[in-house]
């Protein structure tokens, strides 16, 4: 399903959470939605899920506004950080309600995952630990098979092995059934291999939208003596520099690894997590990719 944001703005609790952002998510892909706290990620996902109205601009799914539009929102599943389900419901009730809401619901998968994450189907939501409640959210997100599925920091309290299992199942499920998955997390290093495309938000603006491997290729870190690096980077796009013990390291956008190597510099890749940190602390204006 095609998702379009057109000059999308949202003022939320007196703050401009989203500031005239425009972009398009065309293909069913796994998207990473990254940014610091308060960058507007959650606001964007809630708008896309039709849970609130934009202040101005538009969010469109297949050219239609998702707000108060059940025919559309039954194709959109948003799993939040917590409080996804009513506390008095039993797990099996949560699954039944979800199966009635999502036409694409896969009950067999849901039951398999309940078993996999060792949940008791008769337990009430309020009796679950934080980790178990997160597991239930993940189960509903996966089993919804909704054409647009969003996970917004879905795993508070979930241990490393359960998270790892979640990523495995996500890849398997995605291959069986291609759909748009939007994933927002602070544990970027854990999941960045799953992202086909990354969007980085900064103070309500979209900083970058790009294929993940293209970002890995375009952004490198080079080290050498201070005068060498200083003269090399004068005409380059530099997003971070550091100096230590006579050595200078610069994070440069848009140069070839070979070019840096033939200059005798030490060249290293930059992880998506590091890139997000550099970009969101960069104060030098527009970045030319």
């Amino acid at each position: 399903m095609k998702i379009e944001a057109k000059n999308l703005s949202k003022i939320y609790k007196g703050k401009r959470a989203l500031d005239q952002i425009s972009f398009c998510l065309e293909e069913p892909k796994i998207y990473g939605l990254l940014g610091k706290n308060g960058a507007g990620k959650t606001t964007f996902m809630q708008l896309l899920a039709g849970m609130m109205q934009p202040t101005s601009g538009e969010i469109l799914v297949e050219k239609t506004n998702p707000f108060n539009n059940q025919r559309l929102t039954e194709s959109i599943c948003l799993i939040k950080e917590g409080n996804n389900f009513k506390k008095d419901l039993k797990i099996k009730n949560v699954l039944t309600i979800s199966s009635l809401f999502y036409p694409t619901w896969d009950q067999l998968l849901a039951l398999k995952l309940v078993d996999e994450f060792s949940l008791d189907i008769n337990a009430k939501v309020k009796a679950l630990s934080k980790g178990m409640e997160s597991a239930l959210g993940i189960i509903v997100g996966l089993a919804s098979k909704a054409p647009i599925t969003m996970f917004d920091e879905p795993y508070i309290g979930l241990d490393a092995s359960a998270r790892s299992r979640f990523y495995e199942i996500l890849v398997e499920q995605y291959q069986e059934h291609k759909r748009t998955i939007i994933f927002s997390t602070h544990l970027i290093d854990e999941v960045s291999l799953l992202f086909e495309e990354v969007l980085i938000f900064q103070e309500g603006k979209l900083l970058v939208q790009e294929n993940t491997d293209v970002l890995r290729q375009k952004c490198i870190s080079i080290s050498g003596t201070i005068p060498q690096i200083e003269s090399f980077i004068t005409d380059k796009m530099v997003i971070d520099t550091k100096q230590f013990a006579g050595v200078m390291t610069a994070v440069v956008v848009g140069i070839e690894i070979e070019e840096a190597r033939t200059n005798g510099f030490t060249v290293e890749g930059v992880t998506i997590q590091q890139l997000m940190i550099y970009l969101t602390s960069y104060k030098g204006g527009k970045i030319e990719w």
């Binding site: 990523y167 890849v171 995605y174 291999l193 992202f195």
Partner: peptide, 8 residues
């Protein structure tokens, strides 16, 4: 993709 847990 399954083995390395990467995007297909």
């Amino acid at each position: 993709a399954n083995f390395y847990k990467i995007n297909p």
